[in-house]
């Protein structure tokens, strides 16, 4: 019988649970913001609330186990996000996992959320050839890391202020578009001309990122040029973001060659980013790995797969919430 890990993720908005095998097969996965759980177990859940995790977590665990017919006693381990994240939200996941583990007689492993994101590229099928360069681009994070193997991670660049996903959302708000702003900006950008020379923050300055200044530049431009078509503003903003992201990837891949470039996180959904990354990889002869978008946002499966790395390395971390963790920590 295939050995399975139960992955639990509660670091921010979503309560997510999944069952994952050692080679990344996802036997079951549920994210409690999905309507299915809502319909099946009832209740109304506020979007942002650590206390809401308390209501959602046991029904979500139960649903995943019932759907798959897996008996708790047969689990190899429970892997649960220990940070970084909101302290109250993390505590719900950690306390629940600890209680379930003791009751079922199953070991519990505390997992770094960021390591989960990086491993999401190998969910369902093995995609990543090592060594790999990883670009994590989401609302909460913007970073570049090298992975020589699934467990060996070196951070080589990170944002000094805002994430790129946050810049997308805030520019969307300035343009009077909805939330989340990423997809709307991308669509709008396609019909505009990237004619405004917005700054490319830290373009030739190492591998770190900065997007706060770009956000401010868009704000100043809109105040001074209210007549400019918003399509052109969106197109120019997207062009600035992509030029910075891709230039850093090119530098990193040139400095230290990799077999594959992996892009994960919510902004990996951007069609423009996907197209330009494909062109870069073709130019450099590197494999481009884009995991299915459903694994790009927070989920339990990525935590489950990362848990297998911890088990293989024999690594255990205290089951206490950590509000900040770097990607290099376990």
């Amino acid at each position: 019988m295939t050995e399975l890990v139960l992955g639990i993720e509660t670091s921010c908005d979503d309560t997510a649970v999944a069952l994952v095998s050692r080679d990344g097969q996802v036997v079951a996965s549920a994210v409690a913001s999905q309507t299915e759980i809502h319909n099946r177990y009832g209740g109304v859940y506020p979007e942002v609330a650590s206390r809401a995790h308390v209501d959602k977590i046991l029904p979500t665990v139960r649903m995943v186990l019932e759907d798959s017919g897996v008996r708790p006693q047969d689990l190899r381990a429970i892997g649960v996000t220990r940070g970084p994240g909101l302290i109250g939200s993390l505590m719900v996941g950690l306390d629940t996992a600890t209680g379930l583990g003791q009751g079922w007689g199953v070991p519990v492993v505390g997992v770094n959320h960021l390591r989960g994101h990086l491993r999401s590229a190998d969910l369902e099928e093995k995609r990543v050839d090592y060594p790999a360069l990883i670009l994590l681009v989401s609302g909460g994070h913007t970073l570049l890391a090298r992975m020589s193997s699934p467990g060996e991670i070196k951070l080589i660049g990170t944002t000094k202020d805002d994430s790129v996903g946050e810049a997308y959302d805030k520019v969307a708000r300035m343009l009077g578009l909805g939330y989340p702003g990423g997809p709307v900006i991308d669509r709008m950008a396609k019909t505009g001309t990237p004619s405004i020379p917005f700054p490319r923050p830290m373009l030739h300055d190492g591998l770190d990122f900065s997007f706060s200044g770009l956000k401010s530049a868009v704000s100043r431009y809109l105040a001074a040029n209210p007549q400019t078509p918003h399509e052109d503003v969106a197109a120019s903003f997207v062009a600035a973001c992509l030029e910075v992201l891709l230039a850093k990837c090119r530098t990193a891949l040139t400095d230290s060659p990799a077999q594959s470039l992996v892009i994960v996180g919510g902004v990996a959904a951007s069609p423009q980013l996907r197209a330009e990354a494909a062109a870069l990889c073709e130019d450099l002869g590197v494999e481009l790995c884009l995991p299915p978008l459903k694994w790009s946002t927070d989920n339990g499966a990525m935590i489950g797969l990362a848990t297998w790395d911890y088990l293989a390395a024999g690594f255990t971390a205290p089951l206490r919430p950590q509000t900040s963790l770097t990607i290099e920590q376990y």
């Binding site: 970084p84 909101l86 202020d161 805002d162 946050e166």
Partner: peptide
């Protein structure tokens, strides 16, 4: 000594 980043998505940071 930590780099202070925007908590818009993380909601709260220490």
């Amino acid at each position: 000594t930590d780099v202070v980043t925007s908590p818009t998505f993380t909601l709260a940071q220490f």
